[in-house]
Amino acid sequence: MRQALAVEFRKIRRRKVWLIVAALIFVQLLWSLWAFRNMDARKLAQGWMHCLYQFPLLNSIMMPVIAAVVASRLCDIEHKGRAFKLLETIMLAGRLFHAKFLCGACYMLAAAFLQVEVMVVFGTVKGFQGSPPWDKLLCYLLFTTVVNLAILLFQQTLSLLFQNQMVSLTAGLIGTLAGLYLMFFPRTVERLLLWGYYGVLMLVGMDWDRETRITNYYYMPVNWAGFIVLLVMSCILYVAGRALFVRKEM
């Protein structure tokens, strides 16, 4: 498997897949700089919570597109080179699926790590009150990574099954739009779609007072039930995606 993964990285060594991930993280950083530009004492006191509230919202818009782009770039090489037939004569299709997933997962994991790093550096430089809430940041890292990987699995399956990459990217965009709208719906409805889990697993809630127009953030209990449902969904996606790819005639 290590060899198969190394081959995947060699295939994309000049494709600059990291560039689009870095660009989108950079956009998130710029967004944060803009959102946190005027901080008074009350805002600084809630800085970490504000970060942990804002990033999942940004993720729900941007991360599914990053996942779709990464998956499409990894799988499109084989479609363009008509390489599936050849590849399947030298390695098992299931192993190829797994190697491609691990390769994409490295990028998604790096993106989540970068986000947490950006949050910590940003909060320290801006002078958010208190030390970084490491337990919450760790939970954020775990939840974001698992949602990213689940979406990556979905996108990779579509990108492998359909030569036309429009199908996977359009499905990703429609899912993202649905996920964003579902954030305004009750939690039970939000759980129905993979893309809604950035909202389901949020660690911070917001209370906006319409009269005073003051926003207060508060920590919410960790939604472990939602996390387990997501894990189950990810397993199903992996098994189904792999089976569909293995059975597909190339």
Binding site: A23, L24, V69, R73, M166, L169
Partner: peptide, 9 residues
Amino acid sequence: FAVPVGIAL
């Protein structure tokens, strides 16, 4: 195919 879509976002 995918990079221009990311740029559009």
